[in-house]
Each structure stands twice: as C-alpha cells, then as structure tokens.
C-alpha cells in the first residue's frame, strides 16, 4: 500500500507545479473517512441486501439461496400491495396538504411580518421529536379523553375514532405529519420568497395586476425551483414514514395504516423473515429511485422555465 502510494506520488510530481505538490496526500486523508463510511455503511449493506433478497435469511442461521422465490412471493402478497396503496395515499395527502399549508403560511409571513419570533414559532413543531409529537397527538385524539374529541363531541354529538377506524386513520396520520413538517417547508418557501426582487411586484402593480393575479403569475412561477425541492423532500420523507405510525397505530386497524416501512420492519424484526424484508426494501428503493429521478427531471425543467 505504502509503496504503491509512493510510486503514484513520484509519477505525479512531474505533472504538477510546486504549489500543488503533495495536494493528493491531504485530499486522500480528507476523503478517507467519508469513503470508509460510504463503503462500510452504504455500499456493503446495499450489495449484501441485494444478495440477501435472493435468500431465505432467518438471521440466526446462515442465509439459504432461494433464487427468485422472494420476488415471486412479493408479487402475490396482498398485504404488500395494500401496504403500498396505503403508503401512496399517505404520501399524496401529505404532499398536497403539506404544500398548500406551507405555501399559505410562507406567503402570509412574507406579507405581514418579518419577525423572527413568529418564524421561530412556525418552526416549533419541526423541532419536536417524532415520537413525542406522535404520543401527544395520540392523547389529544383519544376517543374518550382527548381534547379534540371533547370538542368534536360537543359540536356533533359523536366521537370520532381518528386513529381507530379504517377510514380516518390515514388522513389523520398525514395531518399530523403535515403539522410537524409544515414549519420547515414554510421557512424554505419563505426564503424563496425573499429572493424575489420587489421591483417585479412594482412592475406588476404599475401594469394594474391584482394581488391574486400577481400571486398566480409572478410569485408561483418564480418560486417553482424551491417548490420542486420541497416536493422532492416531502415525497421522500413521507414514503419513509415510520415513527409516527409505529407509535400511534402499529399499522392497525386491520392493516389500514400498515405503511411499507412498518411492514418491512415487522417482517424483519418480529417474524425474523429478513430475506423477504430485504426484498421489500429493494422494491421501495427502486420505487424511490424512480420517483426521485422523475422529480429531478422536472426540477431541471422548472429552472430553465423561470430564467
């Protein structure tokens, strides 16, 4: 290793000027930790994962090669497809609602106040740990004792099983998710709004455009790169939802909130069916890869659009 490095160094010395002499050493030292980290925690697990997805792996005994069995099982596993459907429903609700709420919040902040205190308050839910937020919401939504249900009962005369009925559980969970991430997204959009030059609005006003019209034809197009980034982040984050569901419903009732990460976890860690759990992770990986790729293409299109 050392001789090899020395050899490379002597060959290189001829091509580089004295100012850059020895740069490769510093570069190697600086890159080394990240490279080791990437290989140990990134590359090796991915390749081992790909291998394990073709095996029956019960973790306590060595994996046994089973070819495409796990993938065949995946195609005919009703719970997996239902779980995927539930996850997509959660993602769509979270992204649409999250985006609308964050945008509205950011625009209102932008128009009414520059106060850092207000910005801090808006950001507050994001700073709360996911498990704590889930527990607090679970208490507030409790059908018998929760404050939300006391209000709902006073208004309608009925309790609502927010987390306990098939119809309500995913909308409720995505609202909690939106509540939690809304502040962060709003701050991102707010920062985007601040980059828009006031002269543009001035020009709009001179041309006699109304506020809603300016929002539609000036603000939104100019915000598109930021919005696209927020969408990408929200989609990936929502697909990976775990703590919220694990704390509040554990996938119930009747698998109505059994999102994909939770299903993967329970196959792996409660049934010791790691081979199949890895296969599902691979499916999720490919799915996210595709979605992100498509979104990045859209993002690039947006940038050229606004310039």
């Amino acid at each position: 290793m050392a001789t090899l490095a020395a050899g490379t160094a002597s060959r290189r010395r001829n091509n580089t000027g004295p100012a850059h002499r020895g740069d490769w050493r510093l570069a190697a030292v600086l890159i080394l930790p990240a490279t080791v980290g990437f290989i140990v925690f990134g590359a090796v697990p991915v390749f081992r994962g790909i291998y394990l997805s073709f095996t029956r792996f019960r973790i306590l005994t060595p994996p046994r090669w089973t070819g495409l069995d796990n993938y065949r099982r995946l195609l005919s596993d009703d719970v997996f497809w239902k779980s995927l459907g539930v996850t997509v429903e959660y993602v769509v609700l979270s992204v649409v609602l999250g985006l609308a709420v964050s945008l509205a919040t950011a625009v209102i902040m932008h128009r009414l106040t520059r106060s850092t205190v207000v910005r801090g308050i808006v950001l507050l839910p994001f700073l709360v740990s996911g498990v704590v937020a889930a527990l607090v919401w679970q208490w507030m939504l409790d059908p018998g004792l929760g404050i939300v249900n006391i209000v709902v009962k006073a208004l309608t005369g009925h309790n609502v099983l927010f987390l306990g009925s098939q119809g309500w559980v995913i909308p409720t969970l995505s609202l909690i998710g939106v509540w939690k991430s809304m502040g962060y997204n709003a701050i991102l959009i707010f920062a985007g709004l601040q980059t828009i030059a006031p002269q543009i609005y001035e020009a709009g006003r001179i041309d006699g455009a109304s506020e809603p019209r300016m929002f539609r034809y000036l603000t939104l197009p100019l915000l598109r790169p930021i919005m696209a980034m927020v969408v990408v982040l929200t989609v990936i984050g929502s697909f990976q939802v775990f703590d919220l569901v694990a704390v509040t419903t554990k996938g119930g009732p009747a698998n109505a909130s059994n999102v994909l990460p939770l299903y993967i976890y329970s196959k792996g860690f409660t049934e010791f069916d790691f081979g199949y759990a890895v296969t599902m992770s691979m499916a999720l990986f490919v799915l996210l890869l595709t979605i992100t790729f498509v979104q990045l293409r859209l993002l690039r299109a947006n940038e050229s659009d606004t310039n």
Partner: peptide, 22 residues
C-alpha cells in the same frame, strides 16, 4: 410453528371482521 408470522397475519383480518369491514 411460526407464532409471530401467524399473529401478524391474523390480527388485522380479525380486526377487519370485528369492525364490519369483512
């Protein structure tokens, strides 16, 4: 055999039955 897998498979289906969804 296979206690955890049976539990995980049956609980949601009974929940569906008991809540009149099946």
């Amino acid at each position: 055999n296979n206690g955890a897998a049976l539990t995980n498979a049956m609980i949601p289906q009974f929940e569906a039955y008991f809540t009149n969804k099946a």
